[in-house]
Design a binder for these strands. Sequence first.
DNA 1: ATGTCGCACGGGGTGCGA
Length: 260
Amino acid sequence: MLKIATWNVNSIRKRINQLCSFIVDSQIDIVLLQEIKCTEEQFPYAEIEKLGYEYAVYGQVARNGVCVLSKYPILEKLKIDIVESHQEARYIECVIKHSNNKVRVGSVYVPNGQSPDSHTFEYKLKFFDNLYERMGTLLKNEELTIIAGDYNVALDEIDVFDSNLLNGQVCFHIKEREKLRAILNLGFKDAFRISHLNLQQFTWWHYQGNSLRNNQGMRIDHMLLSPQAADKLETCYIDDRLRKLENPSDHTPVVCVIKQ
DNA sequence: ATGTCGCACGGGGTGCGA
């Protein structure tokens, strides 16, 4: 059994204690983090090593930043700029050895896009086009592959608290929903949705106002599985306990369990 | 209520991104 989690941690330095407790208490084998918001020099290696985990880090100053933490040996580490003209730390991929098998994992932080009429929204769509190419290439390997992270898009109406209100807005615009759908049509599976066909649950709630109390959130963090990984999916769940802690990230983790 | 966070810069509050 392999337990894998993804979490937009919104600063790993601010959340290091929550992160370590989560890994230990939930017995997570592999963690994919986004928005670690630090350079590789600033990364809290000591705390991670104390847990006995290996790491692969792609950091930058103040913003973005992704990493992989693993209880099992990391055989390959790949930092990729999905859109080469934007050198931002948004994607890291690792091959991890687990018993006699290998699993390929990617931690992805898709650009937010600000608003649908902004230049950064165009960047977001371009990022999705290039991610589509990368993930299509990965499928050809027919490996156990999981690309998870903050995709900054809710797929369907069930994935947002008010689809009429949010339709056309960033993170629920039809142009970006189509891009995520295209990745699924390549053959990747939405682990949470194949585990819970009709369950409305969110991974992100705004810090402002009463978003959390009123459960006004969105499911924008996803674990996308290759067919080989989906075949072995035991379950996938959203752990909303971390969003309810003091000084939380605005996102909460998604976890999947893979049979081996 | 431009309402909440985290970070850089710089040494106090402001601006940016989300």
